[in-house]
Amino acid sequence: MVDRHVKLKLESINRTYAQGAGELRILQGADLEILSGEIVALVAPSGAGKSTLLHVSGLLERADSGSVTICDVPTDDLSDRERTLVRRQHVGYIYQFHHLLPEFNATENVMMPQLIAGQADRVAKARGEELLSMMGLKDRGTHRPAQLSGGEQQRVAIARALANSPGLILADEPTGNLDPETSSVVFDLLADSIRNHDAAGLIATHNHDIAKMADRVLTLKDGKLVPFTF
Rank of each mutant, 00 (worst) to 15 (best):
N14R: 14
E38Y: 04
A191T: 02
A157W: 06
A124G: 13
E181S: 15
N177H: 08
D121H: 09
S79C: 01
T205M: 05
L32E: 08
G128Q: 09
R216L: 10
D64M: 01
A211H: 09
T219Q: 09
F228P: 04
Q19G: 02
M1V: 10
D64P: 01
N14S: 13
G49R: 00
V110C: 13
R81T: 11
A159D: 02
A48Q: 04
L148R: 04
H143I: 10
R144W: 04
L178I: 07
S12A: 13
R140Y: 08
Q119A: 15
G37T: 11
V226E: 14
S193D: 04
A106H: 08
L101P: 02
T219E: 07
E130H: 13
S193G: 06
L220G: 03
D80A: 15
G29L: 07
D215T: 08
V2L: 11
T107K: 02
S12K: 13
L131W: 09
R155I: 05
G37P: 12
L162G: 04
M1G: 14
S51L: 10
I13G: 00
F228E: 13
K7P: 01
H5Q: 14
Q28W: 00
L60Q: 09
I210D: 06
M1A: 12
A199V: 07
A211R: 10
R160P: 11
S65V: 07
S183T: 01
D139G: 10
G47L: 09
D179I: 08
K212F: 00
N177W: 03
A41C: 13
T69Q: 15
D64S: 02
E23I: 01
L59A: 01
A30F: 01
Q89G: 01
V217L: 00
